[in-house]
Write a protein that binds this DNA or RNA. Structure first.
Lengths: 185, 185
DNA sequence: AATTTGAAGTGATGTAGGTCACAAGTGGAT
DNA sequence: ATCCACTTGTGACCTACATCACTTCAAATT
């Protein structure tokens, strides 16, 4: 079964014809390690789904420091939702931490597909709610946990990401310096 | 015009009959300052919309410290989305900072209304996306801004909330001690 | 009116985590 | 095979912010 179909069917069940119709709205794209899907200042119009690989979304602050918004590995979605939803220029960078195989859908195709297939609207609504909940939990973790606690929670929640990306990246996701993270144990 | 209708029509336009149908899924409720809409450990089944008043959602950590998840004033929605969506017991508290007039909708009525009225599904999808974006921005602010910068960003973004709630509450939303907040200027 | 409760400011001191600097090891690129 | 960029660890020192303690003042509560 196509991995995207398996992924969507975790939320809503699909007929063969429905999945073919869905898939026809996506385009495959391959990127190599260090290549960017988007860079600050660009107009972005696509949401990406990871078939294989590992990526990150991050911002640069005034001092040039990177702050990681999210990682994405197999079965994850990634884009700049603020730019994508509000039709703004992006303020973030998305690059590949490994060679990656992706599918992308344009904003227009996403809207068309939502309108034509109720199930996809349900699917995306569900994904957005879960993303919102996860983000609120991340805020709470930043408010109430120490650096060490946040690291341990991340190890428990995303063990596969911990194993695939450098400590420096993890530090920048957790909001701690790489030196401090290195000294936790 | 009913304030809820005005609020929904900021996203999707409605016929009179549609709004009457929507409103029939909500129940009004009034609460006084210091009263709780939910407390840790309860099963919660309602999402609240604020006609008038001011509320907050917060968690208590192991040390008994409060961390504010969100405020809600006129036109805002509030509940424990994690408990509401995943059918869990709530881990948070929601209480009134002022006497408040609310409308609430049960999970069942929300699902029924979404299924029966495409426009409401669109409306809630939009609200969830914007909530997700706002929460990601809050994470980024915690990662890249100092306490003072976060306070100033909050003053710019939510001036009405700054004026209505105590500095202690604001400190607990920003992730800073009330003493430090008091010393910023 | 008297009393309690909470808000807000501020001094003194403590600490988690940041920054800078350096070293050793590792994997790609040419 | 060599070089270079990157990763990780670690010592020395610094700082933003927390904590504790006390005070003043205003607003609820009785």
């Amino acid at each position: 079964m196509h991995p995207l179909r398996r992924h969507i069917e975790e939320v809503v069940s699909l007929e063969d014809a429905e999945f073919d119709f869905i898939l026809s709205h996506f385009t495959p794209i391959n990127k190599r390690k260090h290549q960017y899907l988007m860079q600050e200042g660009e107009w972005i119009n696509n949401e990406f789904w990871v078939i294989k690989g590992c990526l990150r979304a991050y911002v640069l602050d005034e001092l040039g420091k990177e702050h990681i918004i999210q990682f994405a590995v197999e079965d994850w979605w990634i884009t700049d939702y603020q730019a994508f939803e509000k039709g703004m220029k992006t303020q973030i960078y998305v690059d590949c931490l490994e060679d990656s195989e992706l599918l992308y859908i344009t904003k227009e195709n996403r809207e068309k597909l939502s309108a034509e297939l109720q199930k996809m609207q349900q699917f995306w609504a569900r994904k957005t709610k879960l993303g919102y909940i996860a983000s609120q939990n991340r805020v709470l973790s930043l408010l109430k946990n120490t650096a060490k606690e946040r690291y341990e929670l991340m190890c428990a929640q995303y063990p596969n990401i911990i194993q695939r990306v450098s400590k420096k990246m993890i530090a920048s996701y957790l909001g701690v310096s790489r030196e401090t993270l290195s000294r936790l144990y």
